[in-house]
Design a protein around this nucleic acid. Sequence first.
DNA 1: AAGTGGTCTAGACCACTAT
DNA 2: TAGTGGTCTAGACCACTTT
Lengths: 249, 249
Amino acid sequence: MKENPSAAIDRRSYEPAYAQLVNILRRQIATGVFRPGDRLPSESQLCQRYQVSPMTVRRVINILVEQGVVIAEQGRGTFVKPLELGTAAFHLDDLQRLFRDEAYTTVKLLEARITSASERTARKLDIEVGQRTVFIRRLISQGETPVLYHREHLVYDPTRPIIEAEMEVTALRGLFNGGAKSTIKRGDLTIDVTVLTKEEAQLLQSTIAVAAFRVEHIFYDFDDRPVSWGWFISPGDRLRFTTTVGIRD
Amino acid sequence: MKENPSAAIDRRSYEPAYAQLVNILRRQIATGVFRPGDRLPSESQLCQRYQVSPMTVRRVINILVEQGVVIAEQGRGTFVKPLELGTAAFHLDDLQRLFRDEAYTTVKLLEARITSASERTARKLDIEVGQRTVFIRRLISQGETPVLYHREHLVYDPTRPIIEAEMEVTALRGLFNGGAKSTIKRGDLTIDVTVLTKEEAQLLQSTIAVAAFRVEHIFYDFDDRPVSWGWFISPGDRLRFTTTVGIRD
DNA sequence: AAGTGGTCTAGACCACTAT
DNA sequence: TAGTGGTCTAGACCACTTT
């Protein structure tokens, strides 16, 4: 059988050989040349057919495995993976887009004051009840429409000068776009749903009891101590997450 | 300066060299040896220091880049990436876990009947209004607690025998765990929030107007024709998504 | 025993960035 | 020009599965 000339690797292309082969195989899977459960040609066969070295084929297979398109089984072969809902992931970069357009996105500092930790705050921040914390409220709007309401409790540590910086309204933008404080090592996020309280509805120019996303966060410093606990709230009609499972071509 | 003996690659270990080096570098980043913005040792330096070939170091760097821990810039170096909220993703495998425990999870078929497409259904499934569709309602419970309510509209195509199979209550489990119908190529998912209607609250043994997740889906066959449109609804107090950004060690 | 995927080597060449 | 990351080769050896 003669090969399809379009399914060959162009060595003059700027697209590297491994990327071309990934796309070739993806397309073949997407168009049904290989169906879920089918075995792909063995790696040595792929080497011959596309005139690339074993290492390059290996890399291609690895990428397809990471993409969730195929599953490789040692000694048996590489098989096309059936659709699996569990692999779906929703990315917060929908949220990130909010902060990308600096012109249309404004962050308004509603409140920033020193207070003492409540029982709940103390537990989240792993400090003593009554210890000093900084409480911050922000409202993030896109154009005229408020989209996010942010409440945050920060550990007050005079030896660490992050507080002044954290209050900066631009700090939030940095958090989303990557210019984050280097004092923060990681963050744990939880997404759940609530209905807007009266205060939240008022601020967000929405209606009370409307369904809303709630993204809770705890940020940790490099000593794994919590430094910030808080949450974002966004009415459901202003935020949405989408994704695709299976083979997108 | 002498090297830390614990930060060396054990060639006798079952853990491959590349994985060991990934963990070594991750740990060094997590413990602050390298801070956000810092440049990692060059690839040739890493080769010498850990006694591995360039190809292996290359692979390690690639993995760290994919994990979002570092960013590699050609001609400049590889740098530790600051925390970025936009990279956060929450995975539906929280949902998948529901279906893993077959003993505790039950899928109850509430209704399955042939009907004709409404204007909205027709638009979603890209068919004519009034064309025949199959409407299915399911209730997924964990133990005694209902967790998910599923509504689905399927294109009725007598030439395709998927309908009988789709109605099977086990089909859903397959969708989540990977044994999916090989007739499905991909699915588009959207997650947003609503409040429970009276009917939904009744079925889910919850209260009306409680906040809930709503996962809408459209599944496509290998000809990119929509075959199924529907959505899952789950009260917010029974489902939750978590994730970590930054360096988790 | 034969075939499969998995790891790894020791180089080569290229493109890019800094000086 | 020197140093960096990026791609690629042509093998080697191993672990595993199937026959």
